[in-house]
C-alpha cells in the first residue's frame, strides 16, 4: 500500500514537472530552426545594408567634411593666412601667362629678326626672293612672286611708255632697237 502511494506521488510529481516544462517553451522543430536561420540571415543582411549605408553616409560625411575643411582652409588661404597657396596659384597662372607672353614675345622677336633679316640680306633682289622662299611657306612664296610680278609689270609699263615717248619701235610685242645687244624677254599671261 505504501509502495503504491509512493509510486502515485512520484508519477504525480513527474506529471507536474512535465506540465511546467511544456508551459515554458516547446522544443523547436528542424523546420522552425531553418526558418529562424533565414530570418537571422535576412536580418543580418538588412543590418549589413544599414551598416554599409551608414558606413557610406559616414564616408560621405567624412568626405564632405574633408571637402568643407579643405574649402574652409582654402577660403581663408585665399583671403589671408594661406597666401602662400594663393600666391602659388597666382604665381602659376602668372607664370603661364608670362610663359605665353614670353613665347609670343620671342616669336615676335624672331619675326622681327626675320623681317629685319630679309631687307638686310636683300642686297640684290634675286637673293632676297630666294631667301624669302626659303624662310617662308608656299603662301609667302606666292605672295612674294606676286609682288615681284607687280614690280616687273610696272617696270614693263615704264619701258613701254618710254619707248613710245622716244619714238622707238613698238611693233607688236617688241619695244626698242631691233638690233639692241640686250634683249629682255617677258613671258607672261594677262591674267
Amino acid at each position: 500500500m505504501l509502495l503504491r502511494m509512493g509510486l502515485v506521488l512520484v508519477s504525480a510529481s513527474l506529471l507536474l514537472a512535465a506540465c511546467t516544462s511544456e508551459s515554458d517553451e516547446p522544443p523547436p522543430s528542424s523546420a522552425q530552426m531553418a526558418e529562424g536561420q533565414q530570418e537571422e540571415s535576412a536580418m543580418a543582411y538588412e543590418a549589413g545594408e544599414s551598416e554599409s549605408a551608414e558606413q557610406e553616409s559616414e564616408v560621405e560625411a567624412e568626405q564632405s567634411g574633408e571637402a568643407l575643411q579643405e574649402e574652409a582652409e582654402r577660403v581663408p588661404a585665399q583671403g589671408g593666412d594661406g597666401q602662400g597657396d594663393t600666391d602659388a596659384v597666382v604665381a602659376q597662372s602668372g607664370d603661364g601667362e608670362g610663359a605665353e607672353q614670353a613665347v609670343q614675345e620671342s616669336q615676335a622677336e624672331d619675326g622681327q629678326e626675320e623681317q629685319e633679316r630679309v631687307p638686310a640680306q636683300g642686297g640684290d633682289g634675286e637673293g632676297e626672293t630666294e631667301q624669302v622662299v626659303s624662310q617662308g611657306g608656299d603662301e609667302e612664296d606666292v605672295a612674294a612672286q606676286g609682288g615681284d610680278g607687280g614690280e616687273a609689270e610696272a617696270m614693263v609699263g615704264m619701258i613701254i611708255e618710254s619707248g613710245h615717248r622716244a619714238g622707238l619701235i613698238a611693233n607688236r610685242n617688241v619695244v626698242g632697237n631691233p638690233d639692241a645687244p640686250i634683249v629682255i624677254t617677258e613671258y607672261s599671261d594677262f591674267l
Partner: peptide, 24 residues
C-alpha cells in the same frame, strides 16, 4: 632700263603664255 631701251642698248619683248584657258 628705260634709259637703256631709249638709247638702243636694250630691247624689250613680250611673249604670250596661256595659263588660264579661254580668258587668257
Amino acid at each position: 632700263i628705260e634709259e637703256l631701251v631709249r638709247t638702243g642698248v636694250a630691247r624689250f619683248e613680250y611673249s604670250h603664255i596661256i595659263n588660264h584657258g579661254r580668258p587668257s
